[in-house]
Structures are given as structure tokens and as C-alpha cells.
């Protein structure tokens, strides 16, 4: 009995050592993968990193132009330019994290031949890169419109950051789910681009607030957790706006469920996802 305790005690330090060792390997691998992804995504074009800014900038410009032509310079007390930025950028974080993660296993299959590179690592590396790049784009865009003379005063920067993190985590859950099943069922890709892309783009409150909607449409759209998150994002950004419809518990339930779904599917499918059925 006594020797049992002794031997258990003796294994504790080696247990921690092996956990630390595994964590440091994983850190090294994810670091190497992020650097490699950066190279493949932004290193091949002459404009490189500028590409990351172009798409969101075009999207914001188009929507601002469209709504100004409709003689609408602001949404309530919120100026149009920052209104679009605070809608489009958090949504882009969600969508790009999801889309980039989706292709992670299928497009990195050769790297999985290295024993220490796991499917988890390649998926997470893509999400991390996407989240950090788009966060930088978000900040730079706000800075640019400030230079152009628009008022940029963020009421609660930490809450805005938290909303971006929640967007990324929500995208991570769904991204893990699709990353695990796409290698087995490639046609899933169409579902995410067509079925998920457009409807979510239109129903997440990118260019309207929940309050501005007619009641029966609002009731339906409030099932979409992204609308809640964007409402919270704008509440954090503007002193003048406080959403009366968004619910934290609704947002957290969706984020937790998506992560649970993603991780479970990944755990169940990863072996088959590597080998391909």
C-alpha cells in the first residue's frame, strides 16, 4: 500500500513533464504552421498582405455607397460608415475563420505525414491566422475612417474585442465540424458557400438593426445568433446605441453548442478524415 503511494507520487512529476513536453511540441507545430500559412496565403502575390484589406474595404464601400444613394446617411444616430464596418468586420471574422478551417485537413494532407502535426493543429493554425489578420484589418479600418474625419469613439473596446472573439469561437466550432467531414464528403463545400454564406450574410444585421425591422421578420431573424452578436458589437461601439433585443445567454448557448459539435465531430472523424474513408 505504502509503496503504491510512493510510486504514484513518483509518477506525478514525470506526468507533468510529459504534459509540458507535449504542450511545447504542439506550440512549436502550431507556430510553424501559422508561419507557413502566412507564406502560402499572403506570400505568393505581389500585393501580399494588402489583399487582406481589399475585400472588406470593397464591401464596406459598396454598402456605404448604396445606402447613401438611398438618401440614408445614418442608422438612427449611427453614422453609416462606422455602422457598416461594425457589421461587416465581425461577420467576416466568423465567416473567414469557418471557411478557412473547412479546407484545413483536405489542403494540408501532405503535412499530416509528419507525426507531430495533427489535424487539430492544422485547423487551429488557420483559425488563429485568420482571426489575427482580420483583427488587424478591423483596427486599421477604424483608424483610416478616423483619419478621413469620421467620429470613431469606442464606448467599450473590451466588449467589442470579446464579441470578435465570440464570433471567431462560433466560427471555430462550425469550422471544426466542416473540416472533419469535408474530406469525406467534398460536396459539403457547396453547402457552406451557397446555403450558409448568403442567407447568413443577409440575416445577421450587417446593414440594419433588429429594432428597425418589422416585428414578424425580427422574431424570425432573432433565431440567428450572429444578429445578437452584431447587436452587442454595436452596443459596445456606440454611446448612442444599446440593443434591447440581443441576449447574452442565447449567444453563449450557440457558441458552446457549436464548439461541442465541432470538437465531437472532429474527435469521431479525424482518423477517417486523414485516410479518406
Amino acid at each position: 500500500m505504502k509503496s503504491d503511494v510512493k510510486s504514484t507520487l513518483a509518477t506525478i512529476p514525470s506526468f507533468y513533464a510529459s504534459v509540458l513536453q507535449a504542450l511545447s511540441t504542439q506550440g512549436r507545430v502550431i507556430n510553424a504552421l501559422v508561419l507557413r500559412e502566412t507564406k502560402t496565403r499572403y506570400g505568393e502575390h505581389k500585393l501580399g498582405f494588402v489583399w487582406a484589406f481589399i475585400e472588406p474595404t470593397i464591401m464596406v464601400t459598396v454598402f456605404v455607397a448604396f445606402f447613401s444613394m438611398m438618401q440614408q446617411d445614418s442608422q438612427g444616430a449611427m453614422p453609416l460608415v462606422t455602422f457598416m464596418i461594425t457589421g461587416i468586420l465581425p461577420f467576416t471574422i466568423f465567416r473567414e475563420v469557418m471557411v478557412q478551417m473547412q479546407g484545413a485537413i483536405a489542403q494540408n494532407r501532405t503535412l499530416l505525414g509528419f507525426p507531430q502535426v495533427t489535424t487539430f493543429d492544422v485547423i487551429v493554425a488557420r483559425g488563429l491566422l485568420e482571426f489575427s489578420v482580420l483583427s488587424v484589418v478591423f483596427v486599421v479600418m477604424l483608424f483610416m475612417v478616423h483619419i478621413l474625419g469620421y467620429r470613431v469613439e469606442v464606448e467599450d473596446p473590451l466588449m467589442l474585442l470579446w464579441i470578435c472573439v465570440l464570433m471567431a469561437l462560433f466560427g471555430t466550432g462550425i469550422g471544426f465540424f466542416f473540416a472533419s467531414i469535408t474530406p469525406l464528403i467534398p460536396s459539403v463545400r457547396q453547402i457552406t458557400t451557397v446555403a450558409l454564406g448568403r442567407p447568413l450574410f443577409l440575416s445577421s444585421g450587417l446593414f440594419y438593426t433588429a429594432e428597425s425591422l418589422p416585428g414578424f421578420i425580427r422574431d424570425w431573424l432573432l433565431y440567428n445568433p450572429l444578429l445578437h452578436m452584431i447587436e452587442f458589437g454595436r452596443s459596445a461601439f456606440y454611446y448612442e446605441f444599446e440593443s434591447t433585443y440581443a441576449s447574452w445567454s442565447y449567444v453563449y448557448s450557440w457558441v458552446v453548442c457549436s464548439l461541442a459539435l465541432g470538437m465531437t465531430t472532429h474527435q469521431a472523424m479525424r482518423r477517417r478524415a486523414i485516410v479518406g474513408i
Partner: peptide, 12 residues
């Protein structure tokens, strides 16, 4: 085949 990324150079 190796475990290499064909879009990257040998150095990378």
C-alpha cells in the same frame, strides 16, 4: 511524395 508543401520553396 514526402510531407512537403509544393507551393513553398525548398528553403521554406
Amino acid at each position: 511524395a514526402g510531407g512537403f508543401q509544393s507551393s513553398l520553396t525548398a528553403r521554406e
